[in-house]
Design a protein around this nucleic acid. Sequence first.
DNA 1: TTGTATGCGTTATCAT
DNA 2: ATGATAACGCATACAA
Lengths: 328, 328
Amino acid sequence: MKKFVTISDVAKEAGVSINTVSRVLNNKPDVSPETRKKVLEAAKKLGYIKNATASCFRRSVSKTIGVVFEDSSNPFYTEVFKGIEMRARGYGYQVILMNTERDYVNELKAVDTLLEKRVDGIIISPTQFAQEDIEKLLKLNFPFVILGVHFEGLNVDEVYSDDVKGGYLATKHLLEKGRRKILMLNAYMYKSVARMRYEGYLKAHKEFGIEPFEMVEIEEGYESAFNKIMELSNLDYDAIFCFNDVFAIACLKALKALKRNVPEDVAIVGYDDISYASFVQPSLTTVRIDKHIEGMIAFDLLYEKITEQRSSPKQIVLDVELIVREST
Amino acid sequence: MKKFVTISDVAKEAGVSINTVSRVLNNKPDVSPETRKKVLEAAKKLGYIKNATASCFRRSVSKTIGVVFEDSSNPFYTEVFKGIEMRARGYGYQVILMNTERDYVNELKAVDTLLEKRVDGIIISPTQFAQEDIEKLLKLNFPFVILGVHFEGLNVDEVYSDDVKGGYLATKHLLEKGRRKILMLNAYMYKSVARMRYEGYLKAHKEFGIEPFEMVEIEEGYESAFNKIMELSNLDYDAIFCFNDVFAIACLKALKALKRNVPEDVAIVGYDDISYASFVQPSLTTVRIDKHIEGMIAFDLLYEKITEQRSSPKQIVLDVELIVREST
DNA sequence: TTGTATGCGTTATCAT
DNA sequence: ATGATAACGCATACAA
C-alpha cells in the first residue's frame, strides 16, 4: 500500500498554505480563481484522496448512518434498505449495514460498534427480545429510529405498519371467502408485530362472531415454517394466515407435499408482499407494506433528528393494503 | 446529543495518565492489576465509548472493509454478503455495503467513497462496463478482490465460478433430455459471466453436433426477462437456459401466461440456485454456486492482501454443480 | 485573499 | 509500571 497524499503535499506542490488547499477542496468562498485552479491541478496531479477519517474526526460528523437489521437476506429488508439508501445518497450520507441474524447479542454488539464509529445516527429493527441497547441510545440522546416494530410505553422515533389492520384485513378476507378454520402461523409473540397481527386476526373473528381456530408461534425462516406444517399434517384447517410471505411460500411447498390443493383445500394469505409473492405458483394473496417508503421515512425521521430540526419523538404508522391473488 | 466521554475524562476520574488508560483499554501489558481495575471502573462509571474515528485516524487502520455489489437485493448477493460478513466478524472487521444498481457511475462513486473512508480493503462485483476504478485501485496498490467476474488480461485477485462448465452442464442436460431448440436468455455480453456461460452453451452443442438455436441478450431483472419471453411468444423453442434464477422464475410466469407447460412444452434451467429456485412451482433445475463459500473466500483473499501475507494475485475458480429439479 | 497556529482523541515513543 | 509529549490530517479561528 502506497501512502496517501495529504493536503500538505498538495499545498507544497501548488505553492500555497494548507489552509488554502482546505478552503478550495471544501468549496469555501474567498479564494481567487487562479489559486483555486492551481490547487485543483496540484490535487489532481498528485492523486489526492480526501482522508474522511481525519475530516470526520476533526468535525465530529461522519456523514454516515448505521442500519441494524435482523435479517438482511429477507427480501423485506433488502427493499427497505434500498429506500434508506436512496434517501441517504440524496443527502450525501453513507450507510453501514449490520446483520444480527435475530440474535440479540449481535444486536448489542452492532449498536456498540456503530456508536464507536461515531455514525451520525442509527436505524434499527430490534429483535425485541430485550431493549438495553435502545435504552442506551435513549440515555445518550443519540439520534436513532426504530423500524418495523413498536415499543409500548417507549416514546421514541418509530416507523412501522398498521399491523392490526393488516391482520384484520387478511383474516376478514379469508372469513368472507367462507373459511372457518383459519390457522395463524405466527412469529414469536414477544415481537410487537406478531402481537399486532394476531390482534387483527382475533378482531376479525370477533366481528364475524366466529371462534378463532388456532395460532402457533414458530421461529422465523422458511425451514421452520415448512417443518411446522408437515408436523401439523393432521390438523384440520381450511386456511392459513402467515406471519410473512416467506412462511407462506413454505406453506405452498409443504401443502404440495401433503397433496392438499391451494386454494381449493387450503387458502393462504402471506404478509409483506415481497416480490417473490407474485412470482410463485399459485401467486400469493398478501398484505402489502410499501417497503421503499418505509425505508425512506425512516431516513427522513433520522435526518430530522441528526440535524436537530425536531426534538420530540414521532411515530409514523404506515397504511397497509390487501393484495388478492391466486392463493385465496 | 451529549458529548462523548474521552480517555482524558477517564484518566482524570481514575487519577492516572491518558497513556495508562489507553494501555488498559487496548489490553497492553505492563499495567498493574490495581491500576487496570481502577481504570476500567472509571470507564464504566463514566460510560466511556471508544472513538473509533480517532483511533482509526491515528493508527490508519479502520478494521472495516467495503463491499460494492451491483444489486444487493438479488438473493445471490445477499447470500454472498452473508459469507463475507461471517468471516469479517470472525476477524473483527466491519463491512460497509454499497449498491451500484448496475450503474457504472455509482460504482465509481462507491469506490471513491470507500477510499476516502480509508477502509482496509474492498470486495467488488464490477459491472464490467468499464474498469477505470479497478485500474485506480491497482495503481494505488490498494487491497481489493474482484468477486463473481473475471477480467481477461488483468492480473488481480479474483474469485469466480467456473461458468463455462456451468453453461456446459446446463445445456448438456437439456440436450440429453432431447431438447433441440434451446433458447439462451443471457445477460449483456460485455460481462465475462455472460460470455463464459454462452461459451459453455456452445461447447455442449458442438459436442452433440447440433446447431445452437438462439441467444438473446437482455438487461438484468425480472421484468426485463418476463417482457422478453412475452415478446418472443412466436419463437419456437423447446427449452430455455437462463442467465440466472431470477430470469428463470420470470420465464415460469411468462410461460404460464402463454399457456405453455413446464417442463412438457418448454424445459427451463436457471443459474445460481438462489433459495427461491426450490420454492417455486415447478421447482427449478439450476446450476449451483456455493454463495457462502464464495463470500468467505473473497474475504480470505482480501485478508491476505491487507495483512500482506501475500503480494502476488490469486484467481480462485469455484466449481459448480447441476441441480436437477422439476423444470426439466 | 491568504497564511499561521491550534486542537480534535487516540496511539506510540521515550523518559522516568 | 507509569507519565509526558508528539504526531496523525484536517478544519477553523484568527492574524496578516
